[in-house]
Write a protein that binds this DNA or RNA. Structure first.
Length: 404
RNA sequence: GGGUAGAUGGCAGAGUGGUCAAUUGCACCAGACUGUAAAUCUGGCCUCUUCGGAGUUCGGGGGUUCGAAUCCCUCUCUACCCA
């Protein structure tokens, strides 16, 4: 096991806040002395299907704890998902049915496994204890916190000001999350900065239950590909762990330059000094490196190299070439007339445009071209002579047609 | 329980009987420029179209009218105020 100072250095890298650092040091000292690992809690609510890079910020931290020999405790919020976390929200969450939650929980775990060693972690659905929770226990839990304290948090006071509703059950959420900490006897809980309130409730409840309060370790919120909003499903600015290498790479290349440092810090293990020198260089090169790092992590070094090669081939200044790996679309011969097809139909069939009208517009704009010499079609009524393997392009999208 | 104000395209938000497929902003897509970044400019952004138009839209349902997003009835939902 590494020394306390070494561990502290790893733990605090990239972290936003540690509550409290001194207590953490004590816990680590004891752990090193006794050889007993700390219990590191991280909770995730299965509210959707995609785990994205934003989630990986605390997850990566959890992995680092694992690498140092501590125990990761993953709380799957099967019970809390039904309530919905009000943190950082300006409206209430839609509650999910238990079937949805069940399905989501499964897909979440397989995705999380890309970051954390799930097989070595304790996985605890919090429905396990909340389903047995009695009304008397609930009342006792509710008695631990005042309405004033609940309402003073920013999320709620903003919503009160804005006039958006706050439902009573949402107030239950922090208590439930805090109770999870008691159930699993957490030493440290990880979360985004917006989680601080919820994490602190855990401390209170643990103290109340006669346990040593957990350390609250918050990580900065990762901004999404737009560089403005928090990465999330609703904002549509996220990169999913399950996305293909090409998508992850391309999306990373399109992030604003200002995001580079933040992303390097929170999404890679590179040292601060290394990051500083990378960011000082040309942003385009820095982004390629970042994109390669990310793709390597989720798809392996080989895939990353291939994706980078494709990228360079397609976009490197000078000759524009087609990448080696192009997605394919199948067109049955039966749909062709004399071996040809109207360009407009082809574009829609290939999924490059949503409607024929849009396809016409794009053709007029000169966005559509085909074949090895990039013949630009500008006539809305043009037909395309179809041959197997024909490459069609619309803007930055590129597809190979398979005729069968 | 009583009262008031609302529900318009992905979001915000105009429109209050015909000139409304619905101003505008954001987001989004494409073109030019570039580093497929940003910024900027241009075009587009319900569907179909023989490019003349045509068809379905303004919470749901029903009605008035030659004609409704706009008026009436009703249902559903939401916020605010009073209790």
């Amino acid at each position: 096991m590494q020394s306390v100072d070494e561990q502290l250095q790893v733990i605090t890298r990239g972290a936003a806040h540690v509550e409290k650092l001194e207590e953490l040091r004590k816990k680590l000292e004891r752990s090193v002395a006794t050889g007993k690992p700390l219990r590191i809690k991280y909770g995730i609510d299965p509210t959707g299907f995609d785990v994205h890079l934003g989630h990986t910020v605390p997850l990566r931290k959890l992995r680092q704890f694992q690498e140092m020999g501590h125990t990761a405790v993953l709380i799957i919020g099967t019970a809390t998902a039904a309530v919905g976390d009000p943190s950082g929200r300006d409206d209430s969450r839609k509650s999910l049915t238990s079937e949805q939650i069940e399905i989501n929980a499964g897909t979440y775990l397989t995705q999380i496994a890309k970051v954390v060693e799930v097989t070595r972690a304790e996985v605890r659905p919090n429905g396990n204890w909340f389903s047995k929770f009695g009304f008397a226990e609930l009342l006792r839990l509710l008695g631990k916190i005042t309405v004033q304290r609940m309402l003073e948090r920013d999320d709620f006071s903003n919503r009160i000001k804005a006039g958006t509703p706050i439902y009573l059950h949402e107030c239950l959420y922090p208590l439930m999350q805090g109770w999870d900490s008691v159930e699993i006897q957490a030493d440290v809980e990880l979360g985004g900065t917006e989680q601080l309130y919820n994490l602190m409730v855990g401390r209170d409840l643990q103290r109340d239950a006669g346990q040593e309060p957990q350390i609250c370790l918050t990580m900065p919120i990762l901004r999404g590909t737009d560089g403005a909003k928090k990465m999330g499903k609703t904002a549509g600015n996220y990169i999913g762990l399950a996305e293909p290498a090409k998508e992850q790479f391309g999306k990373t290349m399109r992030i604003p330059d200002e995001l580079l440092r933040e992303w390097f810090t929170l999404l890679t293990d590179r040292s601060e000094g290394e990051i500083a020198s990378i960011v000082a260089g040309h942003p385009n090169e820095a982004k390629k490196l970042l994109a390669t790092d990310i793709v390597t992590f989720y798809h392996g070094a080989e895939a990353a190299a291939a994706t980078l090669a494709d990228w360079n081939k397609q976009f490197a200044s000078g000759g524009k070439q087609d990448p080696d790996h192009i997605d394919e679309v199948n067109i049955p011969t039966a749909d062709l007339t004399d071996g040809a097809m109207p360009a407009v139909d082809l574009i829609v069939r290939a999924g490059l445009c949503k409607s024929k009208g849009e396809a016409r517009q794009k053709i007029t704009e000169g966005a559509f071209n085909i074949g090895p010499d990039r013949t630009k079609l500008t006539d809305v009524k043009a037909t395309v002579a179809m041959s197997d393997g024909l490459v069609i392009r619309l803007g930055r999208k590129i597809l190979r047609v398979r005729v069968s």
